[in-house]
Amino acid sequence: MALVSLRNVSKVYPPASKGAPSVTAIDSVSLDVEAGDIYGIIGYSGAGKSTLVRLVNALEHSTSGEIIVDGQNIAVLPERDLRKVRLGIGMIFQQFNLLGSRTVARNVAYPLEVAGRPKHERAARVAELLDFVGLSDKAGSFPDQLSGGQKQRVGIARALATQPSILLADEATSALDPETTHEVLALLKRVNAEFGITIIVITHEMDVIQTIATKVAVMDQGRVIERGPVFDVFSNPQAAASARFVSTVVKGIPSPAELAVLRERHTGRIVTLAFRDSAVDQKAVFGEFSRAGVAFEVVYGGINEIQGRPFGHLTLALTGADPVIDQVLAHIRTLTTVTEVR
Protein backbone atom coordinates (compact mmCIF):
# COMPACT_ATOMS: atom_id res chain seq x y z
CA MET A 1 0.00 0.00 0.00
CA ALA A 2 1.44 3.32 -1.07
CA LEU A 3 1.93 5.98 1.61
CA VAL A 4 0.30 8.63 -0.56
CA SER A 5 -2.09 7.54 -3.24
CA LEU A 6 -4.08 9.76 -5.56
CA ARG A 7 -6.98 8.15 -7.39
CA ASN A 8 -8.48 10.07 -10.32
CA VAL A 9 -8.02 13.36 -8.56
CA SER A 10 -9.30 16.51 -10.24
CA LYS A 11 -9.30 20.11 -9.15
CA VAL A 12 -11.49 22.52 -11.03
CA TYR A 13 -11.58 26.22 -10.18
CA PRO A 14 -14.92 27.94 -10.77
CA PRO A 15 -15.00 30.65 -13.45
CA ALA A 16 -13.30 33.87 -12.37
CA SER A 17 -16.18 35.87 -13.81
CA LYS A 18 -19.58 35.07 -15.29
CA GLY A 19 -19.25 33.55 -18.74
CA ALA A 20 -15.56 32.73 -18.32
CA PRO A 21 -14.64 29.06 -18.54
CA SER A 22 -13.81 27.13 -15.38
CA VAL A 23 -10.15 26.20 -15.00
CA THR A 24 -9.10 22.57 -14.61
CA ALA A 25 -5.86 22.72 -12.63
CA ILE A 26 -5.64 18.97 -12.04
CA ASP A 27 -7.15 16.59 -14.54
CA SER A 28 -7.88 13.09 -13.17
CA VAL A 29 -4.43 12.38 -11.83
CA SER A 30 -3.54 9.05 -10.26
CA LEU A 31 -0.23 8.73 -8.51
CA ASP A 32 1.34 6.41 -5.95
CA VAL A 33 4.13 7.50 -3.66
CA GLU A 34 5.71 4.65 -1.72
CA ALA A 35 7.13 5.09 1.77
CA GLY A 36 10.79 6.12 1.54
CA ASP A 37 10.53 7.58 -1.96
CA ILE A 38 11.87 10.96 -2.95
CA TYR A 39 9.23 11.55 -5.54
CA GLY A 40 9.86 14.43 -7.93
CA ILE A 41 7.02 16.15 -9.76
CA ILE A 42 8.25 18.34 -12.58
CA GLY A 43 6.39 20.65 -14.93
CA TYR A 44 6.35 24.14 -16.35
CA SER A 45 4.60 27.01 -14.54
CA GLY A 46 0.88 26.41 -14.59
CA ALA A 47 1.19 22.68 -15.14
CA GLY A 48 -0.67 22.12 -11.86
CA LYS A 49 2.17 20.67 -9.81
CA SER A 50 1.87 23.13 -6.91
CA THR A 51 -1.88 22.62 -6.75
CA LEU A 52 -1.29 18.86 -6.74
CA VAL A 53 1.04 18.95 -3.76
CA ARG A 54 -1.31 21.29 -1.86
CA LEU A 55 -4.02 18.64 -2.23
CA VAL A 56 -1.86 16.15 -0.33
CA ASN A 57 -2.09 18.16 2.92
CA ALA A 58 -5.48 19.60 1.97
CA LEU A 59 -4.34 23.22 1.84
CA GLU A 60 -6.57 23.03 -1.20
CA HIS A 61 -9.52 20.71 -1.63
CA SER A 62 -9.98 18.42 -4.59
CA THR A 63 -13.09 18.59 -6.73
CA SER A 64 -13.25 14.82 -7.19
CA GLY A 65 -11.22 11.70 -6.61
CA GLU A 66 -9.60 10.07 -3.59
CA ILE A 67 -6.49 11.27 -1.80
CA ILE A 68 -5.33 8.48 0.46
CA VAL A 69 -2.65 9.43 2.94
CA ASP A 70 -1.44 6.66 5.23
CA GLY A 71 -4.56 4.63 4.54
CA GLN A 72 -7.02 7.46 5.13
CA ASN A 73 -9.00 9.22 2.40
CA ILE A 74 -8.42 12.84 3.38
CA ALA A 75 -10.57 14.19 0.55
CA VAL A 76 -13.65 13.50 2.66
CA LEU A 77 -12.34 14.65 6.05
CA PRO A 78 -13.74 17.79 7.70
CA GLU A 79 -11.34 20.68 8.42
CA ARG A 80 -11.04 19.79 12.14
CA ASP A 81 -9.73 16.29 11.39
CA LEU A 82 -7.48 17.60 8.65
CA ARG A 83 -5.53 19.60 11.23
CA LYS A 84 -4.46 16.33 12.87
CA VAL A 85 -3.50 14.85 9.50
CA ARG A 86 -1.36 17.92 8.75
CA LEU A 87 0.72 17.33 11.89
CA GLY A 88 2.02 14.23 10.12
CA ILE A 89 2.90 16.09 6.91
CA GLY A 90 5.63 18.73 6.87
CA MET A 91 5.80 21.35 4.15
CA ILE A 92 8.48 23.72 2.89
CA PHE A 93 7.93 26.59 0.49
CA GLN A 94 9.67 28.54 -2.26
CA GLN A 95 9.42 31.77 -0.25
CA PHE A 96 10.25 29.96 3.03
CA ASN A 97 7.20 31.53 4.75
CA LEU A 98 8.85 31.96 8.12
CA LEU A 99 7.12 34.09 10.73
CA GLY A 100 9.01 37.40 10.70
CA SER A 101 7.83 38.27 14.21
CA ARG A 102 9.43 35.16 15.71
CA THR A 103 13.02 34.13 16.23
CA VAL A 104 14.45 31.10 14.44
CA ALA A 105 13.93 28.95 17.55
CA ARG A 106 10.32 30.07 17.97
CA ASN A 107 9.62 29.45 14.28
CA VAL A 108 10.82 25.88 14.69
CA ALA A 109 8.80 25.56 17.91
CA TYR A 110 5.60 26.74 16.21
CA PRO A 111 4.31 23.34 15.01
CA LEU A 112 5.08 21.93 18.47
CA GLU A 113 2.97 24.66 20.07
CA VAL A 114 0.15 23.84 17.67
CA ALA A 115 0.53 20.17 18.56
CA GLY A 116 0.27 21.10 22.26
CA ARG A 117 3.67 19.74 23.33
CA PRO A 118 4.88 20.92 26.75
CA LYS A 119 7.47 23.70 26.91
CA HIS A 120 10.50 21.67 28.07
CA GLU A 121 9.88 19.10 25.35
CA ARG A 122 9.66 21.87 22.76
CA ALA A 123 12.97 23.40 23.80
CA ALA A 124 14.76 20.06 23.57
CA ARG A 125 13.28 19.24 20.18
CA VAL A 126 14.09 22.71 18.78
CA ALA A 127 17.72 22.38 19.89
CA GLU A 128 17.93 18.96 18.27
CA LEU A 129 16.45 20.22 14.98
CA LEU A 130 18.61 23.34 14.80
CA ASP A 131 21.62 21.13 15.34
CA PHE A 132 20.48 18.85 12.52
CA VAL A 133 20.19 21.73 10.03
CA GLY A 134 23.39 23.34 11.33
CA LEU A 135 21.85 26.54 12.67
CA SER A 136 22.28 26.18 16.44
CA ASP A 137 24.08 29.52 16.54
CA LYS A 138 21.13 31.29 14.88
CA ALA A 139 18.45 30.26 17.41
CA GLY A 140 17.96 33.83 18.61
CA SER A 141 18.12 35.48 15.17
CA PHE A 142 15.11 36.74 13.26
CA PRO A 143 14.39 35.44 9.75
CA ASP A 144 15.25 38.77 8.09
CA GLN A 145 18.79 38.42 9.44
CA LEU A 146 19.33 35.13 7.56
CA SER A 147 20.39 34.29 4.01
CA GLY A 148 18.03 32.46 1.67
CA GLY A 149 19.70 29.10 2.27
CA GLN A 150 19.58 29.57 6.03
CA LYS A 151 15.90 30.51 5.86
CA GLN A 152 15.12 27.33 3.96
CA ARG A 153 17.04 25.28 6.53
CA VAL A 154 14.89 26.86 9.24
CA GLY A 155 11.89 25.96 7.06
CA ILE A 156 13.07 22.36 6.94
CA ALA A 157 13.65 22.27 10.71
CA ARG A 158 10.14 23.64 11.26
CA ALA A 159 8.62 21.13 8.83
CA LEU A 160 10.31 18.25 10.67
CA ALA A 161 9.40 19.44 14.18
CA THR A 162 6.45 17.13 14.72
CA GLN A 163 8.27 14.13 13.22
CA PRO A 164 6.09 13.82 10.14
CA SER A 165 6.29 10.81 7.86
CA ILE A 166 5.87 12.93 4.73
CA LEU A 167 7.62 16.13 3.66
CA LEU A 168 6.22 18.26 0.85
CA ALA A 169 8.70 20.57 -0.87
CA ASP A 170 6.98 23.14 -3.07
CA GLU A 171 9.68 24.69 -5.30
CA ALA A 172 11.87 24.71 -2.19
CA THR A 173 15.05 25.66 -4.04
CA SER A 174 13.66 27.89 -6.79
CA ALA A 175 14.54 31.10 -4.95
CA LEU A 176 18.10 29.96 -4.19
CA ASP A 177 21.36 30.21 -6.11
CA PRO A 178 22.84 26.98 -7.55
CA GLU A 179 25.31 26.41 -4.72
CA THR A 180 22.74 26.97 -1.97
CA THR A 181 20.31 24.80 -3.94
CA HIS A 182 22.71 21.89 -3.68
CA GLU A 183 23.22 22.46 0.05
CA VAL A 184 19.48 22.36 0.61
CA LEU A 185 19.05 19.31 -1.63
CA ALA A 186 21.83 17.52 0.26
CA LEU A 187 19.97 18.31 3.48
CA LEU A 188 16.73 16.89 2.06
CA LYS A 189 18.61 13.74 1.06
CA ARG A 190 19.78 13.40 4.67
CA VAL A 191 16.22 13.90 5.89
CA ASN A 192 15.17 11.00 3.68
CA ALA A 193 18.12 8.76 4.53
CA GLU A 194 18.37 9.39 8.30
CA PHE A 195 14.70 9.67 9.24
CA GLY A 196 13.16 7.63 6.42
CA ILE A 197 10.82 10.52 5.62
CA THR A 198 9.05 10.28 2.29
CA ILE A 199 9.60 13.47 0.29
CA ILE A 200 7.49 14.86 -2.52
CA VAL A 201 9.47 17.47 -4.43
CA ILE A 202 7.79 19.95 -6.77
CA THR A 203 10.11 21.69 -9.17
CA HIS A 204 10.55 23.08 -12.65
CA GLU A 205 14.28 22.33 -12.59
CA MET A 206 15.34 18.94 -13.92
CA ASP A 207 18.62 19.39 -12.07
CA VAL A 208 16.73 19.05 -8.77
CA ILE A 209 15.14 15.80 -9.93
CA GLN A 210 18.48 14.48 -11.14
CA THR A 211 20.15 15.31 -7.83
CA ILE A 212 17.72 13.84 -5.33
CA ALA A 213 14.66 12.12 -6.75
CA THR A 214 14.23 8.38 -7.02
CA LYS A 215 11.01 8.58 -9.00
CA VAL A 216 9.61 11.30 -11.19
CA ALA A 217 6.28 12.32 -12.66
CA VAL A 218 6.14 14.85 -15.48
CA MET A 219 3.09 17.11 -15.46
CA ASP A 220 1.65 19.10 -18.31
CA GLN A 221 -1.67 20.95 -18.36
CA GLY A 222 -2.93 19.30 -15.20
CA ARG A 223 -2.10 15.76 -16.27
CA VAL A 224 0.70 13.38 -15.44
CA ILE A 225 2.10 12.62 -18.89
CA GLU A 226 4.95 10.38 -17.84
CA ARG A 227 6.18 8.73 -14.68
CA GLY A 228 8.70 6.20 -13.54
CA PRO A 229 12.07 5.67 -11.91
CA VAL A 230 14.26 8.72 -12.57
CA PHE A 231 16.82 6.66 -14.45
CA ASP A 232 14.24 5.36 -16.91
CA VAL A 233 12.71 8.76 -17.61
CA PHE A 234 16.10 10.41 -18.01
CA SER A 235 17.63 7.77 -20.22
CA ASN A 236 14.58 7.16 -22.34
CA PRO A 237 11.93 9.90 -22.09
CA GLN A 238 8.70 9.06 -23.92
CA ALA A 239 6.70 12.29 -23.96
CA ALA A 240 7.92 15.37 -25.81
CA ALA A 241 7.71 17.55 -22.69
CA SER A 242 9.75 15.00 -20.72
CA ALA A 243 12.39 15.00 -23.43
CA ARG A 244 12.56 18.80 -23.26
CA PHE A 245 13.10 18.67 -19.50
CA VAL A 246 15.73 15.97 -19.82
CA SER A 247 17.55 17.98 -22.49
CA THR A 248 17.97 20.86 -20.00
CA VAL A 249 20.44 18.77 -17.97
CA VAL A 250 21.54 16.04 -20.35
CA LYS A 251 23.34 16.84 -23.58
CA GLY A 252 21.92 14.08 -25.72
CA ILE A 253 20.83 14.26 -29.30
CA PRO A 254 21.80 17.41 -31.28
CA SER A 255 18.96 19.77 -32.17
CA PRO A 256 18.37 20.56 -35.88
CA ALA A 257 20.21 23.88 -35.48
CA GLU A 258 23.18 22.20 -33.79
CA LEU A 259 23.13 19.52 -36.47
CA ALA A 260 23.38 22.15 -39.21
CA VAL A 261 26.57 23.46 -37.61
CA LEU A 262 27.98 19.92 -37.37
CA ARG A 263 27.11 19.27 -41.02
CA GLU A 264 29.17 22.27 -42.09
CA ARG A 265 32.25 20.82 -40.46
CA HIS A 266 31.73 17.13 -41.25
CA THR A 267 30.90 15.96 -44.73
CA GLY A 268 30.87 12.25 -43.85
CA ARG A 269 28.15 10.22 -42.18
CA ILE A 270 27.00 11.13 -38.69
CA VAL A 271 25.43 8.63 -36.29
CA THR A 272 24.11 8.86 -32.75
CA LEU A 273 24.66 5.92 -30.41
CA ALA A 274 22.64 5.40 -27.24
CA PHE A 275 24.38 4.13 -24.13
CA ARG A 276 22.24 2.96 -21.30
CA ASP A 277 23.56 1.46 -18.11
CA SER A 278 26.18 -1.29 -18.22
CA ALA A 279 23.98 -3.12 -20.75
CA VAL A 280 25.98 -1.46 -23.48
CA ASP A 281 29.69 -1.97 -23.38
CA GLN A 282 31.36 1.13 -24.81
CA LYS A 283 34.63 -0.77 -25.32
CA ALA A 284 32.88 -3.34 -27.53
CA VAL A 285 31.19 -0.65 -29.61
CA PHE A 286 34.33 1.36 -30.25
CA GLY A 287 36.27 -1.85 -30.83
CA GLU A 288 34.03 -2.55 -33.81
CA PHE A 289 35.02 0.76 -35.44
CA SER A 290 38.72 0.15 -34.86
CA ARG A 291 38.62 -3.39 -36.23
CA ALA A 292 36.89 -2.29 -39.44
CA GLY A 293 39.28 0.65 -39.84
CA VAL A 294 36.54 3.25 -39.64
CA ALA A 295 37.83 6.47 -38.14
CA PHE A 296 35.41 8.32 -35.84
CA GLU A 297 35.28 11.59 -34.04
CA VAL A 298 32.95 12.34 -31.12
CA VAL A 299 31.20 15.55 -32.15
CA TYR A 300 28.32 15.84 -29.69
CA GLY A 301 26.77 14.24 -26.62
CA GLY A 302 27.62 13.24 -23.11
CA ILE A 303 27.48 10.44 -20.62
CA ASN A 304 25.53 11.20 -17.43
CA GLU A 305 25.07 9.36 -14.23
CA ILE A 306 21.82 8.96 -12.33
CA GLN A 307 21.96 7.16 -9.01
CA GLY A 308 25.32 5.71 -9.97
CA ARG A 309 24.14 4.36 -13.31
CA PRO A 310 25.67 5.87 -16.46
CA PHE A 311 23.69 6.64 -19.58
CA GLY A 312 23.83 9.02 -22.51
CA HIS A 313 24.14 9.62 -26.20
CA LEU A 314 27.24 10.10 -28.30
CA THR A 315 27.13 11.49 -31.81
CA LEU A 316 30.02 10.43 -34.03
CA ALA A 317 31.28 11.70 -37.37
CA LEU A 318 32.58 8.69 -39.33
CA THR A 319 35.28 8.55 -42.01
CA GLY A 320 35.51 5.51 -44.28
CA ALA A 321 34.05 3.73 -47.27
CA ASP A 322 30.23 3.50 -47.26
CA PRO A 323 29.96 -0.31 -47.52
CA VAL A 324 32.42 -0.77 -44.64
CA ILE A 325 30.53 1.72 -42.48
CA ASP A 326 27.24 -0.07 -43.26
CA GLN A 327 28.78 -3.35 -42.18
CA VAL A 328 30.11 -1.93 -38.92
CA LEU A 329 26.82 -0.24 -38.09
CA ALA A 330 25.00 -3.50 -38.68
CA HIS A 331 27.25 -5.11 -36.06
CA ILE A 332 26.82 -2.29 -33.61
CA ARG A 333 23.02 -2.37 -34.01
CA THR A 334 23.14 -5.74 -32.27
CA LEU A 335 24.73 -4.03 -29.29
CA THR A 336 22.81 -0.78 -29.01
CA THR A 337 20.47 1.69 -30.71
CA VAL A 338 22.07 3.48 -33.64
CA THR A 339 20.43 6.49 -35.28
CA GLU A 340 21.84 7.82 -38.51
CA VAL A 341 21.41 11.60 -38.61
CA ARG A 342 21.25 13.48 -41.89
Binding site: N57, L59, R83, M91, F93, Q95, L99, G100, A115, A161
Partner: peptide, 26 residues
Amino acid sequence: TPGVIDAARSVGAGPIRIIFTVLLPE
Protein backbone atom coordinates in the same frame (compact mmCIF):
# COMPACT_ATOMS: atom_id res chain seq x y z
CA THR B 1 2.13 37.34 3.07
CA PRO B 2 -0.49 34.66 2.36
CA GLY B 3 2.38 32.16 2.42
CA VAL B 4 2.88 32.42 6.17
CA ILE B 5 -0.79 31.59 6.65
CA ASP B 6 -0.28 28.54 4.42
CA ALA B 7 2.71 27.61 6.57
CA ALA B 8 0.61 27.85 9.74
CA ARG B 9 -2.22 25.87 8.16
CA SER B 10 0.24 23.24 6.99
CA VAL B 11 1.25 22.47 10.59
CA GLY B 12 -2.38 22.15 11.63
CA ALA B 13 -3.15 25.60 13.04
CA GLY B 14 -6.84 26.57 13.10
CA PRO B 15 -8.32 30.03 12.38
CA ILE B 16 -8.29 31.36 15.96
CA ARG B 17 -4.68 30.34 16.46
CA ILE B 18 -3.72 31.84 13.10
CA ILE B 19 -5.30 35.17 14.12
CA PHE B 20 -3.38 35.38 17.38
CA THR B 21 -0.07 33.75 16.46
CA VAL B 22 0.32 34.78 12.82
CA LEU B 23 -1.92 37.59 11.60
CA LEU B 24 -1.76 40.03 14.51
CA PRO B 25 1.95 39.52 15.40
CA GLU B 26 3.03 39.69 11.76
